[in-house]
Structure formats: structure tokens, C-alpha cells
Amino acid sequence: MALVIDIIISGLISGSVYALLAIGFSLIFGVARIVNIAHTAFYMVAAYCIYFVTHKVNLHPAWGMVAAVILVTFLGIISYRIFINPIREHEGAVLIATIALAMAFQEMMVLKFTGTYLSVPSLVKGYFVILGVKVFYQQLLTFFVALLVLAALWVVLIGTKLGLAIRSTAQDREVASLMGINEARVAMMTMGISVGLAALTGAVVVPLTILEPHMWLHPLIMMMAVVVLGGLGSLKGSFMGAYILGFAEALVVFLAPMGSFLKGSVALSIMVLVLLIRPEGLFGVSFEEER
């Protein structure tokens, strides 16, 4: 029974993290057709930012979270303006530009904080016990913040004019342009929202994980798997896919021998199997062939 609770908690948390990351990733892909490999690198930068504020400046982690989200969002917008916007027409160039950005961020973190494992204190201390399993308040907080952010994003996308602009640009760039939507500005705003989401994910998850400069690689892979599994450009799909893969990972880690080595393999195999049956992902709409 304790095992079941463990699996549920672990699955819910990694699922929420993947959902936040994947939705940010598909937003910018949908609007600007940018495959942003550096997405999880921003998540890593945010995590280090919190470490810096709490350990070097000695402020409360909550301030660290606020600073991280603001700074990283600006960092995202600036790098978009300088490096990605000028070459947006060249799909391949954008791709390696984002890879290079991720590498650059990783190396900057290595230079500033060295490659050692670091950790950050939890925002709220303490835990309660269900059926012999310790549930830390931080874990609950992470989960609920993730849900809250997703709900807020939903409201923004459905209820506001910006959300309408984002959705219509994602659907058809040219027609959106004809309707008087400033496509370049929408793309930049979306980049800001997307990177902000990545930073927020980093902020809520950092007390639960270990910081190291390569921490962006595993979430990157899982995030891409989630996006493909759920269907590119479908927010509902990303949400469901994230929890499916999160739980799959948790199940493998707790049940299979050598589980921590196999967790990535199993989750990705699930993705491949789903694609064999539904090539457009679980909730994706199969587009007419773009020519």
C-alpha cells in the first residue's frame, strides 16, 4: 500500500512538471514554429537563480522564486530577440541556435557554480504521514502550484484578447496577420510566456531535485516525448501525456529492478508504441499535408 502511495505522489509530481514544461514548449512551437531545445535550459537557469538568491544573497526562497521567474523571462525574451528572431525563416538554423543557447547556458552555470551537486531548502518545511508514507508539504505545494498555473494559463488562453491572438496565430499565421494581429509581437509575447512557464517549473521543482548543470537533459527528452505523445500543438494532449509518462516513470522506478536506468527507456517506448497506432499523437489533429 505504501508503495502505491509512493508511486502516486511521484507520478503526480513528475507529471505536473512535465505538463508545465510541455505546454510551454508547445505554445511557442504552435505560434512561431520554433523547436526550442533551450526550453529546459531556462528551467535550469531558474533553478540556479533560486540557489543564488537563497545561498549567496541569503534571502527567503520565495524571493528567489520571484526573482528567478522575472529574470529568466527577460533572459528568454532577450535571447529570442538577438539570436532567434533574425533567423526565424530558417528552420534548421533556429534549431541549432537553440541547441547552442542551451549549451551556452549550461557552460555559464558550470563556470559560475561549478559542476557539483547543489540543493535548495524547501519553501515550506514539514510533512504528514498517510499509511506510513511521508508526504512533504513541499511536494503538495509543487503539485498545487502546477495545477494553479495550468488553470491560470487556461484562463489567459481562452478568456483574454492575447490568448485569442495566440490561438489564432497558432492556427494560421497568415490569416491571423490579415486580421490585424501583429504576428511578430504575439510571437515575442508567447516566447515570454513559454520561458516564464519553464522558469516557474524550475522554481517550484527545485527544492525536490538536485541541481547540476546537466539537469536540463532528462526533462528535455521527457518533455519532447510528452509533446509528441499528446499531439503537437494540443494543450489537452500535453496535459494527459505528461501524466501518462510521469506515472509510467514512477511505476518503473518503484517496481522494476534497475528501474532508475530504465525509466527513460520505458516512457519513450510507450511513446513509440502509441505513435505506431496513432501517428498524430493521442489528441493531435492530423493536419492536411502542408505543402
Partner: peptide, 19 residues
């Protein structure tokens, strides 16, 4: 889609190598 899916295969194999 293809790009993101193909990314998975070496990682699946790496899991097997470790296992």
C-alpha cells in the same frame, strides 16, 4: 514529430545498455 520521436531511440537503447 519525426525529429522528436527519433530523439527517443538512442535513449531507449542507452537504458538497455545500463540495464
Amino acid at each position: 514529430y519525426l525529429a522528436l520521436t527519433t530523439l527517443a531511440f538512442p535513449i531507449i537503447l542507452m537504458g538497455l545498455v545500463f540495464a
